[in-house]
Structure formats: C-alpha cells, structure tokens
C-alpha cells in the first residue's frame, strides 16, 4: 500500500527541513569559533597595547560602513541576504600606496634636516628637488577622505598583528552572518509550509472519516 501524495510531499519537506537545520548547525559552529578567535585576538591586542587602548573610547567620530547587505525578499516571506564589501577593491591599492609613501617621505624629512645642518656645504641640488616633490605627494595622500575608513586605524598606526587577525576573523563572521540569516529565513518558510500542509492533510483525513 502506497502513501498518499500529501504525505509523501510532507515527508520530503521534512527531510529538506532537517537538512537545512543540519547546515545551520554547521554554520553556527563555524560562526561561534570565528567569534571566539576574534575575541581572543582582541584580548591579546589589549594585553600588548594596554587595557584602555582597545575599547569603545577609540571608536572614530565619523564612521562609514564598509560592508553592505543586499536583502531581497520574495512574496512567500523568504529573504536572501548577500554581503558586499565596499573596500575590498579600493583598500588594497590604498594600503600599498601608504606603504610606499611612508618610506620616501620619512627619508625626505631626514634629508631636509641634514640640508639645514650642512647648509654651508651646498651639495646635491637634485636631492632638494626630490625632497620638494615627495612632500607634495604626501600632502595629496593626507587630503584623501578615505583615511578614517579602515577601522584598524582607530587604534593606532602600528597596531599589533592580533588586532589584524581579529579584524580578519570578524570580516568572515559578517559574511557568515548573512548566510545564516538567509538560512534562518528559509527554515522559517519551510516550517510554515509544512504547517499548512499538515493542516490540509488532517482536514482531508477528517473528511474521509466522515
């Protein structure tokens, strides 16, 4: 004797529901581990920088989000979240620029001091030109409005590696959070569908009895 189609559909949906719960649990575990890693690294950074150096006091007065979530809701109430990081493409070249410019400008300033000290010697006119050019480049970079955008800089220029590791962990957590939100929404939707199907089935069964 075969099962009726309503029961079969319900069984299939239940299996799908269980699969979704299993994936959710896996992602949850990963999320928890990543958050724990993040806290651990924040604590390590606090230990090396000082107790008050990694706290809410260091938050910038101007903040711009680097991550956006694109939420698309369907008619049946299911929502899909997609994470998009604004700074990913822009940050890397910026970072490489700062690494390049910090070196030469420091050298330029040093040379300037040397030039003042040994003014009477009158040497290297060309190096003077270089010095003049380099600070110009530097001022251009200082004016760029993107400086406050990397939250790592709120805590100083030379932050410990642990803080960078914490940032990396939390970046991953954010992506995972969007995935989990999508999954949670799908679970709620599956649950609602199953409830309505179950009610329909019971209705049909009671009608057959009568």
């Amino acid at each position: 004797m075969g099962l009726d189609p309503a029961s079969l559909r319900l069984d299939q949906q239940l299996l799908h529901f269980m699969d979704q719960l299993e994936i959710l649990e896996e992602k949850r575990q990963k999320l928890n581990t990543l958050i724990e890693d993040g806290w651990f690294n924040i604590s390590k950074a606090r230990y090396s920088m000082g107790n008050k150096q990694v706290s809410a006091l260091q938050y910038a007065s101007e903040m711009e989000p680097l991550v956006h979530v694109y939420a698309s809701g369907s008619e049946n109430g299911e929502a899909e979240f997609k994470c998009e990081r604004k700074g990913d493409q822009a940050e890397e070249p910026e970072g490489s620029e700062t690494v390049e410019t910090i070196g030469p400008t420091d050298g330029g300033l040093r040379r300037r001091v040397n030039i003042k000290k040994y003014e009477n010697i009158k040497e290297k006119v060309a190096s003077k030109d270089e010095c003049e050019k380099e600070p110009q480049l530097n001022t251009k970079n200082e004016k760029s409005p993107c400086q406050y955008q990397d939250p790592l800089k709120w805590f100083g220029i030379l932050v410990p590696q642990n803080l960078k590791q914490a940032q990396a962990a939390f970046k991953e957590v954010i992506t995972l959070a969007a995935e989990i939100s999508t999954l949670q929404s799908a679970i709620v939707k599956t649950r609602l569908e199953m409830q309505t199907q179950m009610k329909d089935k019971q209705k049909m069964a009671s009608e057959l009895k009568e």
Partner: peptide, 14 residues
Amino acid sequence: DTCTGFLLGGIGEL
C-alpha cells in the same frame, strides 16, 4: 568586545 570586533569588520555607521 563584540561591538569592537564587528566595527573592526567594517559595519559601523554614524
């Protein structure tokens, strides 16, 4: 610490 972590991740906005 949770807020600091997520703000480091770049979600903060004023």
